[in-house]
Design a protein around this nucleic acid. Structure first.
Lengths: 201, 201
DNA sequence: GTCTATAAGGAGATAGAC
DNA sequence: GTCTATCTCCTTATAGAC
């Protein structure tokens, strides 16, 4: 392979690893598989990274900054808060359904990080990123519907992430939109109940 | 090691594997580690099991039948429904906190099963067991407080499992009782709202 | 039946030719 | 800088002695 700046090579390896992890899981992302996917020689790996765990750490950092719920669609206007949340959650689950292996991989990454001493901070950073993304969405949902939250947005966001984690696992295990639907309805109603009573004009 | 019936040997290997997985994760449960933990020769493994995946399948079946929420403490009497649920959830999180590595391992097992073609059914069985355990608890909570659920108990149970999965991940990532507490309060309030209005005597 | 010994292959990491 | 070739270790699985 032609000359590449080390930074560029690192980025290419992270992307290759991400493709493997998203489709086959963390365990399948061996240095051999990653370099093959990137079209590089095996030795190039250790020219760019000191170890496999160093790549995983950088990969989680990349995911944290560029992925998470970034693909979230814009909220639909003209609905009440509960419907806005419900449709938002269903849209999120559509993303899960569109690439289940990838969503499974996000859980695996968190858990790999939690098992690896030096990566515990990476797991927390991953969730800090989820919380920030969720906070933006819950603020937007309140603005869009002219409602206010009865609790700090950060607390609402944490609840949203807890619910989406649970919903994601439920869907990944059963792959059954119908069966997950009542849980989505519950989540939307319960979240909407955290808003202050609507203003009388 | 002395003679053992094959069934007994299989059970001993499953127990050994469970100890390793609970403390060090699924990836650490190699046939070598398992047989060493069980005090057997390596070759004994393939005398009892055809492959490592066969053991994992039996291990999940064991977990499904004997563990899950079985360690749940009895509910406290004399409280209203929301408090009963809140204290039940906090008790569950105490179990998570008492052995975080084990709880992490339960997630890993599900995800390993979801990644392995022949084990997809095992993951669903694991959740069916969770749902059954949760259903028993939600029925007990309603009975204890003299309330009735506005939805089928199976649906309430599924919501409970979704919430506990999310709560467990939240706690495992942050290990912060204080930070998880508002999410527990939310879950208890939202679940209690699924009961019919209390009877006027 | 149970063990030691070993096969056969995959892993991370590196030396050294170019 | 980049690659081939290799080192060392660890994996699952099995053959064959006892």
């Amino acid at each position: 392979m032609a000359r590449m700046a080390v930074a560029e090579r690192r980025a290419a390896l992270v992307q290759a690893a991400l493709r493997i992890i998203a489709s086959q899981g963390v365990a399948a992302a061996t240095t051999r598989a990653i370099t093959a996917e990137a079209g590089m020689a095996l030795a190039s790996f250790h020219y760019a990274f000191r170890s496999r765990d160093e790549l995983i750490a950088e990969l989680i950092a990349y995911v944290v900054e560029n992925e998470s719920l970034a693909a979230q669609r814009p909220l639909e206007p003209g609905l009440d808060l509960e419907s806005t949340i419900r449709i938002g959650l269903l849209g999120y689950l559509d993303l899960v359904a569109a690439d289940p292996a990838r969503e499974l991989a996000m859980f695996e990454l968190t858990q790999y990080a939690l098992r690896t001493d030096e990566l515990g901070e990476a797991a927390r950073a991953q969730y800090a990123s989820y919380h920030a993304a969720a906070e933006a969405v819950v603020k937007a949902a309140a603005d869009l519907t002219g409602r206010t939250w009865s609790r700090p947005a950060g607390e609402i966001a944490r609840i949203v992430v807890t619910l989406t984690d649970g919903l994601t696992l439920d869907w990944l295990v059963h792959r059954d939109d119908e069966a997950t639907r009542p849980v989505v309805d519950f989540a939307a109603r319960a979240l909407a109940a955290l808003a202050d009573p609507p203003q009388e004009p």
